[in-house]
Amino acid sequence: MWIFLGIVAALALYALLTYNRLVALRQRVGQAFADIDVQLKQRHDLIPNLVETVKGYAAHERSTLEDVVKARNAAISAQGPGQMAAAENALTASLSRLIALGEAYPDLKANANFQ
């Protein structure tokens, strides 16, 4: 009888510990997604400053700046991990073109706001 109670107690303890671990892992996943969202929001908030800085130096490169703004707006309004990933990839590509634009203008490259 004591052996049976010991086995039942061990199984109950195992189930409790497993449940607690699963809950903790679920919380960590939720926190990780929240951290990603915060980083993406911060990135999205800094893009208008970068666009304004570049506008002063490269007014004739309007299409590059418009692409960055469109990509940013698409990234902000994206819902779900799949859409967010696609929108962030498009934003990264347009920002890469913007950085290349900065390299084409030495005065812009030296500007602290652009850096």
Rank of each mutant, 00 (worst) to 15 (best):
N73F: 10
N49F: 10
A71R: 00
Y57N: 01
V68C: 01
E61T: 08
R26F: 14
A58E: 03
T64V: 08
G6S: 13
I99F: 08
A93S: 06
S94P: 02
V8Y: 08
G102N: 00
D45W: 01
A86W: 09
A74T: 07
A32M: 05
I36T: 09
L13W: 14
E103I: 09
D35L: 07
H60V: 04
R97V: 00
V8Q: 12
L13F: 10
Y14G: 09
A110V: 05
V51I: 04
P48L: 12
A74L: 13
L65A: 07
R26Q: 15
S63Y: 02
V51F: 00
F4Q: 12
T18S: 03
Q31D: 14
Q31Y: 07
T92Q: 12
T53K: 00
G80M: 12
Q83T: 11
L91H: 03
I7R: 02
L25E: 13
I99N: 10
R43Y: 07
G80N: 14
V54H: 01
H44V: 01
Q115E: 08
A93F: 11
L17G: 03
E61H: 09
A110M: 13
A100E: 15
L98W: 00
L46V: 11
L5N: 06
N73M: 13
N113V: 05
R97Y: 01
P81M: 14
Q31R: 10
L5K: 04
R97T: 02
A104Q: 12
A74K: 04
Y105C: 08
I99G: 08
A75D: 01
S63Q: 14
S63F: 10
